[in-house]
Design a protein around this nucleic acid. Structure first.
Lengths: 330, 330
DNA sequence: TTGTAAGCGTTATCAA
DNA sequence: TTGATAACGCTTACAA
């Protein structure tokens, strides 16, 4: 069980470690004979080069940090999957960190990644660490790519969705048939939530639909707060007849709340940013803004790879890729 | 942007690198004065110790490989989350690898992890690399913990669910009311699928319900194959009036298929292993075997930590933790 | 309480 | 075409 190193292989094969290294990395000249013996010895000893030593020597970890608020959320994992797929093609590995949406854990995760000397960071932030992250982006010398969520004043590439336009379109749809429209909103510091609220509110305004404060519920993107939101709306003297929800979890909570209140699931019309699995199955009176996690992940990967390739050429200005979303009417 | 090392800190603080190291690791004696200057210098230079160098020197990567067939599957990610949470408490980081259920990618992932010198591996296998994995477990000298899925003949700890008993219970329930029961099964080499099929088949046998070959559809656990399965059943001269499905994705496909065939979603009674998000919302004539990813993940973590702690004391025999599942009737 | 220096397993430079 | 050998950034005996 003794761990076997390049020296053991060298000894067994009767060559120097330098030669082993050359065949391992296809670098420099190696005679065909030597190459064969070496490969055979490697196989026989079941030798695997130590990536840690290699990283140290080459000053390249070949790792990319991926920092997410919720790894059980399929949206982020679909995004990560397409990202990781592209990274692998470039010989990079993703190091995933789950922040649980908590600012302290986010900072801890980022610090850990800096110590691991990741070559880049992909971040869907909590929105609550902007100054620290800005400093880190400046000081680290590695590229950051923001995904899904923007962070104001952070000079990094971005891959995200067209939140405002899509929310506008979906809310405008509701406005054609309703005069009392509620909005399940999210925290102000999460850019996606804010943009979707802004887009929807603008649509209502343009359609001449009033939006009293009591029709905007400030939730936190969780199922539970969606439930609270609809229950709150239902208490109102004149409850909304339609609701726009800024994310799918809150939409789900909305339905839980309706059921809890003994209302039919189609007793109100709903437009939701983000899909619900069952929408195709039962979806009545439900419009969906379909998101494109795969495209966002791929875009992020492209930005990353490009940035890594041009690392030496100095920073340049940051790029932003927006992927269009699709509004699907039921 | 020059990268700053322990030497820079030593120079700035006017001490040796050894002393820096001592305060960094809280090891050995350091005068209070020195400690303060050093911490201040670290702060000022914004120094972060290089985890790679540390790993190399200490021969401890503090990383655990986590190999999964599908990172977009919430079941596996819930499992991973509780696993990771516990790992972090022990100063370990998870290195996630998605195999897409593909044996070649699985091997590639495992090889990569061995090169990274992970201290342990948590694996939900494809079931198609048993000999190679057995060899790796023997040769690597690091603990493996299998999660969710067993691998025959692989001497490793295991944390999994009570598949057979739960499937038995759920199918017995159906057998009380039906005589024509179909089963949406999975690949034979995935232990969970096989055990659930076995449990269900046994229940039917004991209840005296016939199970002709045409009532067992060999799917692959995907949504698409669930759809195919139900459509195939519906073609039968005498279609089943109830179906037991070995996982939630296939169950979802079943409903898609029903809808496609123009049948009402409650035109047949269904028992499903694994939850569907909407089951609480619409769930009629649907029984669920609720799984416990959190518990499995936690159990895996415990096994891992224990194994790591006793690493020097030789192997010992492998342990298996089974977490009980709950059958929820609608 | 502190410093010196040897290594951890590689890669890369320089000679041979 | 190959081999010595000096790093990479850290930890850790061992001395002082």
């Amino acid at each position: 069980m003794k761990k076997i190193t390049i020296k053991d292989v060298a000894q067994e094969a009767g060559v120097s470690t330098a030669t082993i290294s050359r065949v391992l990395n296809n670098t420099g000249y190696v005679s065909e004979g030597a190459r064969r013996t070496i490969l055979e010895t490697i196989e026989r000893l079941n030798y695997r080069p130590n990536a840690i030593a290699r990283s140290l020597k080459q000053d390249r970890s070949r790792m990319v940090g991926i920092v997410l608020p919720d790894m059980t959320n399929p949206y982020f994992m679909k995004l990560s999957r397409s990202l990781q797929k592209r990274l692998r093609q470039s010989g990079l590995h993703g190091m995933f960190m789950d922040t649980y949406g908590d600012p302290d854990m986010e900072l801890e995760a980022l610090n850990g990644l800096m110590m691991m000397r990741v070559e880049a960071v992909v971040l869907a932030g909590t929105g609550r660490n902007v100054p620290a992250i800005r400093k880190m982006v400046r000081g680290s010398g590695i590229p950051f790519v923001l995904v899904d969520r923007k962070l104001p004043g952070v000079a990094a590439d971005l891959a995200a969705e067209e939140n405002e336009a899509a929310a506008h379109e979906a809310a405008a749809e509701l406005a054609q048939r309703h005069e009392a429209i509620g909005i399940l909103a999210g925290p102000d510091w999460i850019s996606t939530a804010r943009e979707r609220l802004d887009g929807a509110a603008a649509a209502l305004r343009e359609a001449g639909v009033a939006l009293p404060a009591s029709y905007v519920f400030a939730g936190d993107l969780t199922r539970e707060s969606g439930r609270e939101g609809i229950l709150t709306f239902l208490q109102l003297p004149k409850p909304p007849t339609a609701v726009f929800s800024v994310n799918n979890e809150m939409t789900f909570g909305l339905y839980l709340g309706l059921r809890e209140a003994g209302k039919a699931l189609d007793s109100i019309e709903v437009a939701s940013f983000g899909d619900l699995e069952f929408s195709g199955l039962f979806g009545h009176r439900l419009s969906i803004v379909e998101q494109c996690p795969d495209e966002v992940g791929q875009a992020a990967a492209e930005l990353l790879i490009r940035r890594l390739a041009h690392a030496e050429k100095g920073e340049g200005t940051e790029s932003r890729t927006f992927v269009p979303t699709l509004v699907r009417k039921w």
